[in-house]
Design a protein around this nucleic acid. Sequence first.
DNA 1: GTATCATATGAACAGAGATTCATATGAAAG
DNA 2: CTTTCATATGAATCTCTGTTCATATGATAC
Lengths: 114, 114
Amino acid sequence: MPHRHDHSEAIRTVAELLPKDELLCDLGDLFKLFGDTTRIKILYSLFESELCVCAIAELLKMEQSAISHQLKILKDAKLVGCRRDGRTNVYFLADDHVRTIIGQGFEHLMEDEK
Amino acid sequence: MPHRHDHSEAIRTVAELLPKDELLCDLGDLFKLFGDTTRIKILYSLFESELCVCAIAELLKMEQSAISHQLKILKDAKLVGCRRDGRTNVYFLADDHVRTIIGQGFEHLMEDEK
DNA sequence: GTATCATATGAACAGAGATTCATATGAAAG
DNA sequence: CTTTCATATGAATCTCTGTTCATATGATAC
């Protein structure tokens, strides 16, 4: 028992309502995907239209390799999809939740400005 | 010019619609807050009721110091608020956006299960 | 086939961030 | 005013992660 004062009641109540550890981890992992500027920029770019790797690299003024690495992460998480087109790889948003989640973050920031 | 094939049109279009760098960074920083399991757990705990530091530490079975450090980060970001109560510090959700954003993440995970 | 373009990938490096340990602060009880 | 409890904080450590560099793959054009 680390401390003396009693809050066991509150703890019990909250503990029962807390989701499983695994789910909370998955939730953290999901938000981690949005927690990087490069990935946010990539996702935001794909809001408008599908794009090939080198277009994104040019747009963000970053190296092709860096973009490719991040696209792999987004693809593994199934936030983006990929399609071959000649010798280029075209990426696109795989899920409309991406728009919603980023939109929510956006709204939060906007209200903070006030 | 890093590559030969032309996509300058797509780049121009997207570039115009892309928010400022600073905003995209802020967005990334916001999501970074949710991208850690400990912080997710803390926020989730505060969904139910306000809690003092040692209650959270006990609940999550983590050291008081670790919780305190994370609470500082959440407080600096104004996601949680803090109130003195005798010699304990009581923390609470400062913003209902937190519920919305985490809720969206939750929904995304649930749909993925299918 | 060979050369070239677009992308992927692995290793190495560097920076950020989370936890722990030790200690400081601050309030209340005696 | 001293002691104890609750929390905060700084430094150190260790882990994770993003970028770069070099290279591999894969497809097209010649």
